[in-house]
Nucleic acid binder design. Structure first.
Length: 602
RNA sequence: GCCCCCGUAGCUCAGUAGGAUAGAGCAGCGGUUUCCUAAACCGCGGGCCGCAGGUUCAAUUCCUGCCGGGGGUACCA
């Protein structure tokens, strides 16, 4: 866990103070957490009221264990703390104070500035990185669109969240493995094959996805009045699954065309995968997976289907094969888990999939758990407790679920194009001399779309709103990109070495202090993002940071004049530029983690 | 029927360890630039925090019930 350096300093000093002053206790109970900086660190909190200081250490627990009055301990502690500070007064300015049972500490602004800016500038883009995940593999299953269907904005969630988590875990030292579990198998391909044979004589034309989708929609419509179609589709999929050439050829064509189309969208988004192993990849691994479950004695026949009964766990039965013998998605997910475990020996496996599939994953994970119990696999070699479903809500449109069948869908590529077009128009107005306008416009348009998706907590349903996505003001991706471009502009203009010796006394205004506090929180924000698989932590943090910096950028003196970053006062300029550089680094890195590019000019 | 998620300003959303005058963006109104990028900054107006109980010194936050919206609940994924 990346440490909060300032808090750690407080913890170390306080532990030292405890050791120096409470000799009698130290001798009899040397293992008390009070005497150890690392353990004390865990007990230190942030006060609710910032006026109390930067950190607060509550002494109630200590007092209870020691059988003493918290206020008395606090008084003795404070004396020792102050003595230590006095000895090291050249190193940092830190003030301790007590209020009842709370031992509060507050850093002098220049001390905060020095510690934070040193950290950021020395680490550069590595700031916030850590090695907590070192040696650990995390498999992330994300995006996973359905073949032969349009890539709608609904698919952006899994794609953007997964890609973000990939980068975040990588930054924390994990080895991430990104898998696109394409929906390229299943009964719907039987339907498509039948539909294509019936009505696809004209070929698929130059927009094959659209054409395939039309066929799919038409199939569903005609199926309502002609039940024989349903049977035909089932047979076609059955044939496909059992290796029939004719069906396989058609299927392959559908897959290739779709992948080609999806790749265009991924290219715009700048998103990549380590593996494009869709459901069909597991086709030849199905028998052994089913065999393994059977051998463990978990399966039974029910209504002609092969199922695993989960009544005991209050879950519907997990269907492995249908009455006609064909497999289902649970079967393929199980085979996928077995394969991934064999292949990657993952420490964690995340499934970034809509919350609607909650029960499905509960079933599948429970089956794996039962299997490993039945097989008597040692606890630490089990995969079942490493599986996690990262759930998120819908993107709705016109307050309805997006549905390809109902035609209520917004194509992601269209959104990205429109956003880039708008960005281009704005650049033409504001900065027509900019080089490479098209490229920058794409960066901004895409950034706007991705940020819009990652700027609410993932579990809520959101309504897709063209106006909101195509608005580049306020809490948006372009706002962050603009702030970054402005920071770059300052660095360019200054043009000198920023790491040269800095007088931190020039960074003590309240607005600057706020920026500094935010800067040092960044490593913690990354950890929170990983802990909750919640990119929103980063997006909301970046908005706060950008807003805090923009306030500094336009802060005014008593006469209402803007205090410029770059002025005649060399020392002040140098110090402010150090702040500028630190903010620039963090915003760029934060945007990178979200999967958003940061243009240097716009 | 049962299970899960959501209900906060006109709109979109924060508020995750219960605590004081509930925050932000958009939209509306009013300011700021002889220019370090105004895609910004500053200010104003706007809220029975779905409803009703309960726990607590204190509830938007925890518990129960109800209402409203969404999703799930064996042969789709």
């Amino acid at each position: 866990m990346a440490k909060d350096e300032l808090k750690y300093l407080v913890a170390k000093l306080t532990a030292q103070a405890f050791r120096e002053t409470f000799k009698e206790r130290l001798d009899s109970f040397p293992d008390d957490p009070e005497f150890d900086g690392d353990r004390l660190y865990e007990k230190i909190e942030k006060p609710k009221d910032p006026a109390m200081g930067d950190y607060a250490f509550p002494l109630f627990d200590t007092a209870k264990r020691w059988g003493q009055n918290p206020v008395d301990i606090n008084k003795r502690l404070l004396e020792a703390q102050q003595a230590i500070i006095l000895r090291d007064k050249d190193k940092f300015k830190l003030e301790f104070s007590i209020k009842g049972g709370f031992n509060n500490s507050k850093f002098a602004p220049e001390t905060l500035a020095r510690l934070v800016i040193d950290n950021v500038l020395n680490a550069g883009e590595e700031y916030g990185s850590s090695d907590v995940g070192s040696g650990k593999t995390i498999v992330i299953d994300y995006s996973s669109p359905n073949i032969a269907k349009p890539f709608g904005v609904g698919h952006l969630r899994s794609t953007a969240i997964g890609a973000c988590l990939y980068r975040v875990f990588e930054k924390l030292g994990y080895r991430p493995v990104g898998i696109n579990h394409l929906g390229d198998w299943g009964t719907q391909f039987g339907k498509l094959i039948v539909a294509y044979r019936l009505w696809g004589a004209g070929g698929l034309g130059d927009d094959p996805i659209e054409r395939l989708n039309e066929l799919y929609v038409r199939f569903h419509k005609e199926e309502e009045t002609d039940p024989s179609l349903t049977d035909a589709a089932r047979e076609a999929f059955k044939a496909l699954e059992s290796g029939s050439q004719d069906e396989a050829e058609l299927w392959k064509e559908f897959v290739d065309l779709s992948l080609e189309e999806f790749q265009k969208t991924y290219d715009i988004l700048g998103i990549t995968f380590d593996y494009f192993t869709g459901e069909s990849f597991y086709n030849d691994k199905m028998d052994s997976a089913i065999g393994r479950l059977k051998a463990a004695g978990l399966t039974e026949m029910s209504e002609d289907a092969l199922v695993i009964n989960l009544d005991k766990y209050n879950l519907p039965p997990c269907l492995l094969t249908k009455a006609d013998g064909a497999t289902l998605y649970a079967t393929r997910d199980l085979a996928g888990i077995f394969y991934r475990w064999e292949t990657f020996k993952f420490d964690r496996a995340l499934y970034v999939v809509n919350a609607a599939q909650r029960v499905h994953f509960q079933q599948v994970f429970k089956v794996v758990e039962l299997l490993e119990e039945a097989e008597h696999i040692p606890e630490n070699e089990r995969m079942s407790h490493r599986l996690e479903h990262v759930q998120f809500g819908w993107i709705r449109f016109n307050d309805q679920a997006m549905s390809t069948r109902k035609g209520n869908i917004v194509i992601l590529k269209d959104v990205l194009h429109r956003a880039a077009e708008l960005a281009r128009k704005i650049i033409m107005e504001k900065n027509p001399d900019l080089k490479d306008i098209d490229r920058t416009a794409r960066m901004i348009g895409t950034g706007a779309v991705i940020f819009a998706d990652l700027s609410t907590r993932k579990h809520i349903d959101v309504n897709f709103d063209w106006e909101a996505v195509l608005n580049f003001e306020g809490e948006t991706g372009p706002y962050l990109q603009y702030t970054h471009a402005r920071l770059c502009s300052l660095v360019r203009k200054y043009g000198r070495d920023i790491t040269a010796d800095i007088d931190y006394n020039h960074l003590t205004r309240p607005d600057e202090n706020r920026v500094l506090h935010l800067l040092y929180r960044f490593p913690h924000v990354i950890e929170e993002t990983a802990a909750g698989c919640e990119p929103f932590m980063i997006s909301s943090y970046l908005l706060q940071l950008a807003s805090a910096f923009n306030a500094v950028y336009q802060q005014k003196d008593g006469d209402g004049r803007i205090i410029k970053i770059i002025s005649e006062d060399e020392k002040a300029t140098n110090a402010r530029m150090a702040l500028v550089e630190a903010v620039r680094i963090v915003i760029k890195e934060g945007l990178y983690l979200l999967g958003i590019e940061a243009p240097e000019e716009m």
